[in-house]
Amino acid sequence: MASGLSRREVLATSGAMALVASGVASAEPNVTLLNVSYDPTREFHKAFDVLFAADWRKRTGQILTINQSYDGSGKQARAVVDGLQADVVTLGLAYDIDSIAQRGLIAPNWQSRLPSNSSPYTSTIVFLVRAGNPKGIHDWLDLVKPGVGVITPNPNTSGGARWSYLAALGFATRHNGGDETRALGFVRGLYHNVPVLDTGARGSTNTFVQRGLGDVLLGWENEAMLAIDEVGPGKFEIIRPKLSILAEPPVSVVDKVVDKRGTRAVSEAYLKFLYTVAAQELAVKHHFRPRNRTVAARYASTFPALDLITIERFGGWKVAQAKHFADGGTFDKIYQPS
């Protein structure tokens, strides 16, 4: 069925079949790549794939078709583990790629293979409020006030929600001088103000924007900026807390798949291309924070500098996952009658 269905032909001039592959790559004139990604990158990858395919063709003469799969980050990692033949994964948090690596599909040292923890772009956790900020929400402490409805997805099923949870915990830990019990008390108070836990980030955005529920949406900065783009300016505004978390959406080649399919060269080039100035500019356009210093400096006003804690503060993803989001973790305890 594959050839009959129209996949997104990134470069599709039928006459190009005659093109002879030059120098670099294999004799195969056409190549396909499957990028298994998470929901918020849809718009970015749509544009990036065109850019990369054009560049790849210029360099090798190969016509590259990039197939895209989107869903929640955790679900996508599981699909790859269960056999989805992804050449590259571009997911929402390192834990998800670690999970794939743990099952032998990706080399354990994946995160050090590319610059900046293998995260070509970053984001952070911010607040989206309704125009005029009627509830006067300015920082984390405002989220636990009575009568404030906070919309955020379920950390059990959403990678973005885990970043949000940890950002809140990070703030509260600092606010309470490192007292963990009191910090968790703050997080508990925050989640008690949450009327709906959607399963994914987009679900939460829809609940907040379309259904009109809640006073503040807690989530990805890129999602908040996109929501304003899509719904039209003037209806919502972004509030950036003084302290937040450095959310690093990582990327990796799936070693087992690319070695079997013979697509390692193009897959690695695809990921390296994410670090080029052109790609970084594109990331900015789709509301991700660029890693490239020059590009970042150019857009310093778009992405105000915040005090950002990192995942290392929580002992890395493996520790954080087990302690907070596993069965019986601190998130579960929030919903148990104490």
Binding site: V194, P195, V196, L197, T199, D332, I334, Y335, Q336
Partner: peptide, 8 residues
């Protein structure tokens, strides 16, 4: 609503 213990 998917709230643990309430609407999950």
């Amino acid at each position: 609503g998917n709230m643990p213990g309430v609407s999950e």
